[in-house]
Design a protein around this nucleic acid. Structure first.
Length: 741
RNA sequence: GCGCGGUUAGCUCAGCUGGUAGAGCACCACAUUGACAUUGUGGGGGUCGUAGGUUCAAGUCCUGCACCGCGCACCA
């Protein structure tokens, strides 16, 4: 507080005579903050708000997809991160929170494609690669602007001067460099493997991007020579010439490995070969199956083990190939009934089970049913040994020989990366244990091109295209998670050795939803440890999913979606933030209801009135006035200091839900209900010494409460701060005031 | 099949390193022209899923079981 004598008696600013109106303040305050440039740590250092050698605190915002608009999940994420960031900033740390958006290749392209088809009845092939990409870029740009606008509405104190997009120039350079380095280390290879092919989107997708959807189909028992085989997919069976059974299955002990059997099949007589493999489940169906190695991952593995032929039956569009004989050229969906009819005519159908419930793999990013195919694709080898030249990763020494899997495990095991809540560490290890090589190539157009060129069998990989004629670039683009995996350091200017990189990497916290642990968190660890020798972040804070008051997922079909912008308009961003924090233990889903948000709007108003009352009580008070504190004054202050200690401690431990609840509880039920009530007779009394002492206490309670609450409810606290007399404040803006110790 | 959670007041959930149960909402009664259109005080309500175990002491640690949820894999 200032010690210059000020004229007494702060008149109550008129604004307090009406209830707090969030809409009347929020945009104005955000503009004020933005104009101050205090979201940028460089400016904070320049203005002496953070010392040049103060500890740093950095977060990169999980970049929302440029596919549309923000939902409550984004709002929760922004609330949590802004709380951490505002707390750090008030502590005088060099605090950086970097905003950005993600191209979300498949999701975005798929959205634009479907809009194009709806509006003009055209496909991307009608437009051509260049024209189509123009459309995607326009869409992405528009939705980017929407998202930025919404992000600001939440009060997020992001440094917009460092805004990044996964497809912009700096990130392009990072992605190309990353690919080149991994390629040169032999960690990226191209090979023919069975992949998840989405015939609708005409691209591969990674294992993690698949959702298994329950579906009921017919299940057919077909006579295959002396055997009966079960299948839900007769349309894949044309080329089946291996019949597989468990080696210990007594029912088939008379058949021997390699035995050849002549039999009548869909399009005439064939020769089948008996294969014994212990991956066969004797309990399922008849315990015998035929295999289609080109279109099934398990069959592919059996074929690999026994060195069997593989033949493609279905093309990339889902049409049957010439092997299907009279059915060639038909779409598999349509062909099924006709195939069964023919089999029935030939007497090859033993029986049909009508209601067979099974899971069908679908592309979770808006695509169709997955049809496995063997294709030449690019992979990252997670099991290959290589030498990591430079390591700052706990548990990994420079120059040691490791695999990417080992790096990912070590980063967490030795405490380089701490995960909250703790239980997700086990989930993380479990995922790594099951991890297979990561297919990184996609056949869509929107995204980073693979920086590889071919000429006469020669392969060239570099950040820039090769000189000379005749080189053809690889047509594929990279999985969007490849570029997202670089996010913590590509946003800081890597591969250039920038000051930002030096100051802010590894980042302090990565805050995201637990549903994205594998897609993103694990891949950032992979990329960062290999490419920078550092962990990407020291802490991972996983928040839950926002659900409705009945604990159901919010979805369009249930009609229970609560739009954050609607809620902000009705109750203010502060109320929305608090309702997403209180009751939200880390990693647990958050039940949200409009009622809850409304309750916190009341709280903002309560604080407003507390201020009004306090300023009235401070009439005539100046900081230079002295009084004599009595025991009750001291007790109020020591309670206040205890709350400060507890809230700070909870914030350090990422227990934001507890910190918020305690602050709320203190302000409403301690400060308002008890302290202010008890102070009324003292303020109205005749003992001037006691009155002055109490005024000083009330002033401190108010100022400290505003500071404690600021990270959670930045708008109403700042709005109040702006109305307080200068002598009560240690900074022009509450946003950069000092956190109480 | 492998793995991870949850089960605490009518509802939604907190409860960290073990010391005789908490919040918000809802409900009931009373007070209040109040700094508060959005107020206060008080109250009812829980053998903390279940059976054991460790301990002077268990909602909290261990084991089994039941039910609910989630993730991964498989599904010929």
């Amino acid at each position: 507080m200032s010690d210059t004598p000020t004229p007494a008696a702060p008149a109550i600013p008129e604004v307090f005579l009406k209830p707090y109106d969030p809409a009347g303040h929020e945009d104005r305050l955000y503009a004020m903050w933005e104009q101050s440039d205090f979201f940028n740590p460089d400016v904070c250092i320049e203005k002496g708000i953070a010392a040049a050698d103060a500890p740093t605190f950095s977060i990169v915002l999980p970049p929302p997809n440029v596919t549309g608009t923000l939902h409550m999940g984004h709002a929760a994420m922004l609330a949590v991160e802004d709380i951490l960031v505002r707390y750090a900033r008030m502590q005088g740390k060099r605090t950086l929170w970097i905003p950005g958006t993600d191209s979300a290749a498949i999701a975005t392209q798929s959205k634009v494609e479907s809009e194009l088809y709806k509006k003009e009845g055209k496909t991307r092939h009608d437009l051509g690669r260049e024209e189509f990409l123009k459309l995607v870029y326009e869409f992405a740009e528009e939705s980017k602007n929407t998202i930025i606008g919404q992000t600001k509405k939440m009060g997020s104190s992001l440094d917009w001067s460092r805004y990044a997009f996964t497809l912009d120039g700096t990130r392009y350079h990072a992605v190309m460099t990353a690919f080149k380095r991994m390629f040169e280390a032999g960690l990226i290879y191209r090979g023919a493997r069975i992949v998840n092919w989405d015939p609708k989107m005409q691209t591969t997708v990674s294992d993690d991007e698949i959702d298994h959807v329950e579906q009921t189909d017919q299940f057919y028992y077909l006579k295959y020579g002396p055997f009966v085989i079960g299948t839900a997919r007769p349309e894949t069976k044309f080329g089946d010439k291996y019949v597989v059974m468990h080696p210990d299955d007594e029912r088939y002990k008379d058949y021997t490995q390699g035995q050849q059997i002549e039999l009548e099949w869909i399009n005439g007589p064939i020769t089948a070969t008996v294969i014994k493999d212990d991956s066969i489940d004797r309990e399922f169906g008849t315990g015998v199956m035929t295999i289609t190695p080109w279109h099934d991952a398990t069959d592919f593995e059996i074929a690999e083990r026994h060195g069997l032929d593989k033949e493609q039956i279905i093309d990339e569009k889902g049409l049957l190939l010439p092997v299907a004989g009279e059915f060639a050229g038909q779409h598999i969906k349509k062909a099924r009934a006709a195939i069964i009819e023919k089999l029935q005519q030939k007497g090859l159908v033993e029986k049909i089970e009508e209601k067979y419930v099974h899971n069908v793999a679908t592309n979770s990013r808006g695509g169709g049913t997955i049809e496995p195919q063997i294709k030449e694709q690019w992979f990252i080898d997670v099991n290959k040994k290589f030498v990591l030249p430079h390591s700052e990763i706990p548990g990994v020494t420079s120059g040691s020989e490791v695999t990417l899997k080992e790096l990912m495990t070590a980063a967490v095991e030795h405490g380089g990366v701490d995960i909250f809540p703790e239980r997700f560490k086990r989930v993380y290890y479990h995922w790594i244990g099951n991890l297979r090589d990561w297919c990184i190539s996609r056949q869509i157009w929107y995204g980073h091109r693979i920086p590889v060129w071919y000429k006469n069998g020669e392969i060239y990989c570099d950040v820039v295209p090769p000189s000379g004629d005749g080189w053809q670039q690889d047509l594929d683009t990279l999985d969007t998670w490849f570029s997202s995996g670089l996010w913590t350091f590509s946003t800081l200017g890597w591969p250039e050795e920038t000051a930002d990189l030096k100051n802010y990497h590894p980042t302090t916290v990565l805050e995201t939803g637990y549903d994205i642990l594998f897609f993103w968190v694990a891949r950032m660890v992979l990329m960062s440890t290999f490419l920078t020798g550092q962990v990407p972040f020291k802490n991972v804070y996983l928040h839950g999913l926002v659900r409705d008051e009945k604990n159901r997922k919010m979805s369009k079909s249930l009609g229970n979606i609560i739009d954050p912008l609607d809620m902000i308009a009705k109750y203010g961003a502060d109320a929305v933030r608090l309702s997403l924090i209180i009751g939200a233990a880390p990693g647990n889903d958050v039940p949200l209801s409009e009622q809850k948000t409304k309750g916190y709007k009341h709280f903002a108003n309560k604080l407003w009135n507390i201020t009004r009352f306090t300023l009235t009580a401070l009439d005539g008070y100046t900081p230079s006035s002295t009084g004599t504190k009595n025991a009750s004054d001291e007790e109020i202050l020591s309670t206040l200091h205890a709350v400060v200690a507890e809230v700070s401690d909870d914030l350090e431990k990422f227990s934001l839900h507890l910190a918020a609840e305690k602050t709320y509880h203190y302000i409403w039920h301690e400060l308002a209900d008890k302290i202010l009530e008890e102070s009324k007779p003292i303020i109205n009394g005749t003992d001037e010494g006691a009155k002055t002492a109490r005024q000083a206490v009330l002033a401190e309670c108010l100022i400290t409460s505003l500071k404690l609450l600021h990270p959670f409810m930045p708008f109403v606290t700042e709005a109040i701060w702006q109305e307080l007399p200068t002598h009560m404040k240690d900074a022009e803006m509450l946003m950069v005031a000092k956190w109480p110790q």
